[in-house]
């Protein structure tokens, strides 16, 4: 914990924090306020900090033009499923790689790590071919299965492994002496202790799924199956030009709930991580 600060230092710190927060806040501010402006005002110079005559018409049109409610549900349920699935897969694998000795462990870990190294642009074509052959195009399966089992979950496994490596082993030893099996030790002892790491993984995973852009565009084609980032691209006028106010309204609605969740969860999340520490 840091020490107490003199009032002058505090003032300087507040000044620095305020200045630093401008580039973080302004674009979001602009996005939200511009969604309340008419299009001609959005790109006027100098930028208006507040809309002259705020209007909410764009928010109504978001729902008129696209099944936005359904798309919201799609994004939400996919992200939740992916998060739960990833937690399960990565906690098990991370624990095994950190705690259990088995033959070929290091090689297998490297094999799994390969997934961390591959951009989605590289594998999108083969993945598309595979899912097409399975008849799973225009379904949510690719958006659920690939993140849980494929490359995106590798980072989660990596984080979990690093966390378990840093966890003191005594408790588990004791549990095993008491006759608990491996799975029971994992389930009853290790997992409860890893709540902060699971929290970090959950946030990473949820955001990754929530913001996924290339994959939904490639895999989905029916508007009622779209996810939110994909839906954002659909608000265009008769000539392919973006309907800025509507797009920004939709983008605001996409971002704000996640932000609210973060605000509520962050204290636990950050402090939880701090208590046990994410050890390398």
């Amino acid at each position: 914990m840091s020490r107490d600060l003199s009032p002058r230092t505090k003032l300087v710190l507040y000044g620095v924090l305020l200045v630093l927060s401008v580039p973080f806040v302004f674009p979001t501010w602009w996005m939200v306020t511009s969604s309340l402006k008419p299009v001609s005002e959005i790109f006027s110079f100098p930028p208006q900090l507040l809309p002259l005559n705020p209007r909410f018409g764009a928010y109504q049109r978001v729902f008129d033009l696209q099944p936005f409610g359904q798309q919201y549900v799609n994004s939400l349920y996919i992200a939740l499923l992916v998060t739960v699935g990833t937690l399960a897969v990565s906690a098990l694998a991370g624990y095994a790689f950190a705690r259990i000795r088995f033959r070929g462990q290091n090689v297998l870990f490297l094999v799994v790590l390969a997934g961390l190294l591959i951009p989605s642009e590289v594998t999108i074509v083969p993945l598309f071919q595979m899912f097409f052959k399975l008849g799973l195009i225009d379904t949510h399966w690719p958006l659920i299965l690939v993140p849980i089992l494929g490359a995106p979950s590798v980072l989660a496994t990596f984080i979990m492994r690093q966390f378990f490596l840093g966890l003191p082993g005594e408790l588990e030893e004791a549990a095993r002496v008491d006759g608990l099996g491996r799975f029971a030790t994992f389930w009853k002892i290790a997992l409860p202790l890893s709540r902060p790491a699971l929290g970090a993984v959950a946030i990473f995973t949820f955001l990754h799924s929530w913001n996924l852009y290339l994959e939904p565009i490639v895999f989905l084609s029916s508007p009622e199956k779209f996810t939110l980032p994909q839906a954002l691209t659909q608000f265009v006028d008769a000539y392919g030009g973006p309907m800025w106010d509507v797009q920004l309204a939709a983008a605001s609605m996409t971002a704000l709930p996640v932000l609210v969740v973060f605000v509520i969860a962050q204290k636990q999340f950050v402090e939880g991580l701090a208590h046990t520490g994410l050890k390398g």
Binding site: V112, T123, P126, S153, V154
Partner: peptide
């Protein structure tokens, strides 16, 4: 020890199979 080994493999199985299908196989195709 053997029991531990098996558990290890079972624990990593979903991740490993997932990697094989959704990472290694696509990479091989590439």
């Amino acid at each position: 020890r053997r029991r531990d080994q098996l558990t290890g493999y079972l624990f990593i199985a979903p991740q490993l199979v997932g990697s094989a299908v959704f990472v290694i196989l696509p990479l091989a195709l590439v």
